[in-house]
Design a protein around this nucleic acid. Structure first.
Lengths: 341, 341
DNA sequence: TCGCGCATTGCATGCGAAGTCAATATTGCC
DNA sequence: GGCAATATTGACTTCGCATGCAATGCGCGA
């Protein structure tokens, strides 16, 4: 019964504006104008063209259009391979933001650090109108985009050169709040679980926490490093507590590790969280709200950040002379029950 | 100090193959051939061209290439807006798969059901070489792609017409295993929390579970529906248990809801999971492995599924005559500690 | 009724690279 | 050393659409 339906399956060649023009008895230019916004076309013309187009199943070829207009209407979004539950949500929201502005998203992921050069090459070849980068990038790559006049907006990372726009969450401020709150509630013995060495976000968070601790006169702080994963959070707590040392609070560089910390503290060491140990995270991912954890954390305002990022990128695409701008959002302070504050 | 660096910022126009040809003192055709795979070019030629290209920062324009070769080297990947932690991982892995095959991914998300038509239009306009669909699609849309000769591979959904390829996890088999195991361990009073009404995956899972229960002679089964979210899992258990009714096992259509069920059972009703209530899920997402839940579930083999999907789509792109194929993978049976089995 | 200005429309060209075909350079072989 | 066979190379066309410019049509006022 599925042997049928084997007919030619439509014209081998897709209809072009010439085909439509011929059928409608008008010129190709006319067809082109009907399918643009600001172009002038009489009502009669428009109707005839649209009907012919409909009949042929014609769709303007965005590739050809891009060639002549020098605008692909595509932006590249680059994200790192994350052990992190935070970026997928960012990705989805960014895509919706661009979609609303009639811009398509070409997605690139970085499986390895060294892939970045390949990805840069691809983005240049595909003539994306702009780039939204939520992954590591070095100065020379930034320079490549600048010299190619491709607008670039960094997501949660910034360069000192300040030559490029950025949107980020104020990691340090968030950490200061966490530390301040913990300290005010009487915590004194702190441990910090940082993220991967090469994560600038992790560095900002760790530095922010350390700076605040320093301001408060706490100078003995244990710092371990994880890789943002749940497992590494568990492992870190194992390392911290197996020696018999005691802590009042663990500050994890992200929520996934914080959750790992809680599980290890409870499961492996029988500690009550938050009564015997406070644990805080950062990001505000979905699982942080699971009752079993109910993390005290700082939630990145993803909606506003992605909206701002898309808006900034679009502005810079439309006005290449626009100067770089940096937008910093404060994270939302979430008082969960994983810390005594 | 950021006032400097305001120099012209490179040539306004990107270098073309003609520019390279001129600088290298050769023809444009020669440049073109140097930048292709199977083309013939002498060593000397290649060297001269590559040097000129390097000097000008030339990159072949993939848009123009696509126009003439009738291949954009882009595929569209469409995902629904998920309350679901499963799809982000699929997306990342698919992107890596295509990337390895030198194919770019144009990402589309569906915020609303009705967006599908807009997205279909976009995919056609951008002349993607193929489409990987992990969202709802109806027969008329499938027909559009078929008549436009665009290969389509469905991810975790299939059509009766069988006119299009698909990759999916055997939802029913997984549910049968769960139900069978629970029943064998003595569970008799079952509740099922299904996903959104319009989710075909949820329908398959629910049907699979019901069918197996029926085979085992269990005919009194409560079925509630959620929306795949953690919150809806909690709400469902609330509804189930507040009446005073008792259950032995709750079968949630996905892990997120299963986790919600566990939290509600423990937190709201003080039940011990799994001693007083068994809870099982489906998907095998990261949080399912958190110690606090350690879900008994069926893990979809994402790696193999995405690899298969990418491979099938690429094959169909390279050989349009290839007949549709369906690949069904069994899920991995994960015996966690959220169920007494 | 005639003329002027504006709105439509068609013609011709170009965006940047790939591929066809013919001309030329190179090679191998007797 | 000469010729056929092969490998390179370049001129020209093409992909599908947008756009500058010229030509046409229209409406309206004098």
């Amino acid at each position: 019964m599925s042997g049928r339906g084997q007919k030619p399956a439509g014209p081998r060649r897709r209809a072009t504006s010439y085909d439509v023009a011929e059928l409608a008895g008008v010129s190709q230019s006319a067809v082109s104008r009907v399918f643009q916004r600001g172009a002038s076309a009489s009502k009669a013309m428009r109707a005839r063209v649209l009907e012919a187009a409909e009949q042929l199943g014609y769709r303007p070829n965005a590739i050809a259009r891009g060639l002549i207009t020098q605008r692909s209407n595509m932006v590249a979004v680059v994200i790192g391979r994350q052990t992190n539950l935070f970026y997928p949500e960012v990705l989805v929201q960014l895509t919706e933001q661009f979609s609303q502005r009639d811009i398509r998203v070409l997605l690139f992921t970085l499986a390895q650090e060294r892939d970045i050069d390949i990805v840069v090459e691809q983005m240049l070849q595909y003539r994306v109108d702009g780039i939204l980068m939520a992954a590591m990038l070095n100065q020379s790559q930034v320079e490549v985009f600048r010299s190619a006049n491709i607008p670039l907006v960094l997501f949660n990372r910034a360069f000192e050169g300040a030559l490029t726009s950025s949107v980020r969450c104020d990691q340090a401020e968030g950490e200061r709040w966490l530390v301040q709150s913990l300290h005010a509630a009487g915590h004194r013995r702190f441990a910090i679980i940082s993220g991967p060495e090469d994560s600038s976000v992790s560095a900002e968070r760790t530095q922010g926490a350390l700076a605040q601790l320093d301001d408060l006169g706490v100078d003995e702080v244990t710092v371990l490093s994880g890789d943002y994963s749940y497992a590494s959070g568990k492992a870190a707590v194992h390392t911290l507590l197996q020696s018999g040392a005691r802590y009042d609070a663990v500050i994890a560089a992200n929520d996934a590790m914080a959750i790992g910390c809680i599980d290890a503290a409870r499961g492996e060491f029988g500690l009550s969280v938050p009564d015997e140990l406070s644990v805080v995270g950062f990001d505000g991912i979905g699982p942080a709200r699971f009752d079993a954890y109910d993390l005290t954390t700082v939630r990145q305002p993803i909606g506003r950040m992605t909206a701002a990022a898309a808006e900034m990128l679009v502005h810079r695409i439309e006005d290449p002379e626009m100067l770089p701008e940096h937008r910093v959002f404060s994270g939302e302070h979430v008082r969960g029950s994983s810390a005594r504050i």
